[in-house]
Design a protein around this nucleic acid. Structure first.
Lengths: 144, 144
DNA sequence: TGGCGAATGTTACTGTATAACATCGCGACG
DNA sequence: CGTCGCGATGTTATACAGTAACATTCGCCA
């Protein structure tokens, strides 16, 4: 899916969910899309300042929070960063793989494997929320 | 395992790994042990300052990093915090369950379930590091 | 057209973490 | 015994991450 199609789909997605992908939110989403992999909030802020002169942290954080809420982005706790989710349509749980060496990020679906985790959690009397796992390791290129 | 035994075991553990649980590191570990569940670095810093008058962030962070490296603590990314690991002896991967409501933390072993995750990662040409998963959800008490 | 609510702007601050350099303490080794 | 090296700790300053609180704007619709 190219960038234009993605943005259009994202807009429709928000519409369906009863909220709006405003100009600002769209701009922030575009800025995130321009990067490979994980982006930091302050990187987005800097980019935004380049495009519109002024912008303060809350501006960016509010937009990012919104996009995460809509499932368009995932937050990567381990890196204090954000990655685009390119399959926000399907209700899913996914696994985000972050390469320790090159920082590249990929997202894979993981329903089956998660079932096992849910079992373990159940055994500990714990109910898991829907969530996205972030795991670190080595990607194909860096493993060599 | 009570606190004294734990500290002694921790010291032996470091020894075996060829490094030292110095007085400072031991003190920081004790401070973490005094709390239930997750502790923040700046909480430890404040405690440390109460005990020894002065202390700066790097002092605490260096000690915490060391303890994490030795497997005595786990870092909980999602909370910017740290929890004691009470089974640092066995080479293990574990799953840290954080209750969204009360903040309580428990750690469970999870070898079996992880095998599934490794399979999924392999399929994506990705080699997972040994790591501790942090998952959020609701604990028994808060689920009611 | 006026008023309501959501979105955004603005200021200031709190919390998290690390860089860079100084100093200390202790064991190895001549 | 000195001193060299090195790991641990102290110190200062600053970078990076996130939010509270309040002001303002904008679109919608009664």
């Amino acid at each position: 899916m190219n960038r234009t199609d993605y943005l259009q789909a994202a807009e429709a997605h928000c519409e369906r969910r009863g909220c709006k992908l405003t100009a600002l939110r769209r701009q922030v989403l575009e800025l995130v899309l321009r990067h490979q992999g994980v982006v930091k909030a302050y990187q987005v802020l800097a980019d935004l300042q380049k495009e519109r002169g002024v912008a303060a942290p809350p501006t960016v954080y509010r937009a990012l929070d919104f996009l995460v809420e809509q499932g368009l982005l995932h937050r990567v706790d381990a890196l204090n960063g954000f990655v685009v989710c390119d399959h926000f349509e399907c209700q899913h749980e996914s696994m985000i793989l972050v390469c320790e060496t090159c920082g590249k990020v990929q997202e894979v679906d993981v329903m089956a494997a998660l079932a096992g985790l849910h079992d373990v959690a159940d055994a500990a009397d714990f109910t898991l929320s829907h969530q996205n796992l972030t795991l670190t390791g080595l990607c194909k290129a860096c493993r060599i």
